[in-house]
Computed example of a mutant assay.
Amino acid sequence: MDLIGCGTALVTPFRADGAIDEQSLYSLVQWQIESGINWIVACGTTAETPSLNEEEWLRVIRIITEAAAGRVPVWAGCTHNSTREAVHKARIAAQVPDVTAILTANPYYNKPGQEGQYQHFKAVAHAVKLPVVLYNIPSRTGTNLEPATVMRLIEDAPNIVGIKESSGSLPQITELVTQAPRSFSVYSGDDNMALGAIGVGARGLVSVASNEIPAEMSRMIEEALTGDWPVARQINRKYYRLIQANFWETSPAPVKAVMAMMGRIEEHYRLPMTPVSQATRSRLERLVGELGLLVHAPQEEGDYRMF
């Protein structure tokens, strides 16, 4: 799997009655692809996946793959703190047509050590033939997947082909890039670290902000990967406040609030996620208005080469 660019960790839109808003989800996929996004992650962290039962989880993956229709790769999120359950989910997802890779994160809550994580990820990888992308996100799971453990996994499970790195540590990302085989892909899992990660050799970004601005984020990553750093930095400068705003409160509450302001989804959540506070909402509304993103507001392309 030689995939570079920007992928979107897509939100799951809900209706007021709590059901998945399938029509909105289908439309989001169309918009993402039309905007130039390089791949889509179904049922990642931003999708409120822990709030989906297995039937809903599988339905979301199917809707996204059907909407994508092979135009872009689709990664299926298969994370569980029970290795047996993670293996079970990976096997089911691998049978869905057009799922191109399995994305699986550290086992949460259990806080396994390096050996436990090694055994866990190896079991998931050995259970499927699809490429597997590791997902290291210590802020959510309570445990860090160290580069030395990643190297063991690459050696013992050849279908582990990449990692979404959300440790927030540029030195750790650099260590992975410099130690892993060239065939292994490191992706930034943090929008605010994307340019730094690409600067040391990462192959792209799995983005939250691309839910709101897919064309802009995909262009920023493309420019960075092709070495046009002035353009990439200018795009980053323009939208960095939005990138930060998506984490003013626990994600995905801010990003779903912004997408509702843009008219892309209705703003509904599954408990324990709740809407942002009124103070945060007011700040978001002001920011989104300043960026010209309200309710499909037409935007000028802009010359990002101008400083």
Rank of each mutant, 00 (worst) to 15 (best):
5 G>N: 06
5 G>A: 04
11 V>P: 01
17 D>M: 08
22 E>M: 02
25 L>S: 07
27 S>W: 02
29 V>M: 02
35 S>H: 13
36 G>A: 09
39 W>R: 03
43 C>S: 12
45 T>D: 02
45 T>I: 01
47 A>P: 12
47 A>I: 01
48 E>M: 06
48 E>I: 01
48 E>F: 01
50 P>H: 11
52 L>V: 05
54 E>C: 01
56 E>Q: 13
58 L>A: 07
58 L>M: 14
59 R>L: 15
67 A>D: 03
70 G>M: 05
74 V>H: 05
78 C>Y: 00
82 S>M: 06
90 A>R: 07
93 A>W: 02
95 Q>V: 00
102 I>T: 09
105 A>R: 08
106 N>W: 06
108 Y>M: 09
116 G>T: 05
117 Q>F: 02
119 Q>K: 15
136 N>T: 08
140 R>W: 03
142 G>D: 12
144 N>G: 00
150 V>F: 00
150 V>G: 02
154 I>M: 14
156 D>V: 01
158 P>I: 07
172 Q>P: 02
174 T>V: 05
178 T>R: 15
185 S>C: 11
188 S>R: 06
195 L>S: 05
196 G>W: 06
198 I>L: 07
198 I>T: 03
206 V>N: 10
207 S>G: 10
220 M>G: 10
221 I>D: 09
226 T>I: 08
226 T>F: 01
228 D>I: 00
228 D>G: 00
230 P>L: 05
232 A>Q: 07
238 K>N: 07
238 K>E: 14
250 T>F: 04
253 A>P: 12
257 A>Y: 14
263 G>S: 10
264 R>H: 10
274 T>D: 04
282 S>T: 13
283 R>C: 08
285 E>I: 04
287 L>C: 07
292 G>H: 12
293 L>W: 05
295 V>E: 14
297 A>S: 15
